[in-house]
């Protein structure tokens, strides 16, 4: 499709906004792994794979897993943002394989924020 007008653009914006809030389709949330070069050098690939694996293992298919660029928090990379339903997004830092497993188990499944990994509550 070619975008030719403001209306076309607005339509796509609407779709995109659903994506960003993690509620496109029948999804109820979104986990974002910062995958810039810095994140990757701190092990973000393993983090991403672990999250996907753990969600799979637990039969969870209503959480979108996406990658983003560097949030600027390189010191605590790998960083992961979790946004579920209408809750405020939460950013976790230093998320290695073990931490990624805990995030799925405790936050996604258990609904509890992991205070020890918390960096910041909202991305904005």
């Amino acid at each position: 499709m070619k975008i030719k007008s403001l209306e076309d653009l607005e339509k796509i914006k609407e779709e995109g906004l659903k994506n960003l809030s993690g509620r496109q389709g029948k999804k109820r949330g979104r986990i974002t792994v910062a995958m810039g070069t810095c994140g990757i050098s701190a092990g973000a690939k393993d983090t991403l794979m672990t999250i996907i694996d753990e969600l799979d293992k637990n039969g969870i298919d209503d959480i979108a897993v996406v990658q983003s660029g560097c949030m600027g928090l390189c010191e605590v990379e790998p960083t992961v943002e979790v946004q579920i339903g209408d809750q405020e997004p939460v950013i976790y830092g230093n998320v290695g394989i073990e931490e990624a497993k805990r995030i799925v188990k405790e936050h996604v499944i258990g609904g509890r924020i992991l205070g020890d990994l918390l960096v910041k509550k909202s991305a904005q």
């Binding site: 070069t37 990757i40 050098s41």
Partner: peptide, 21 residues
Amino acid sequence: CLGACSMAPVMLVGERDFYGR
């Protein structure tokens, strides 16, 4: 400079395997 300066010191093996700190 491999562009991962915040992870210094850094090395890269092959094309994609970055190791930082």
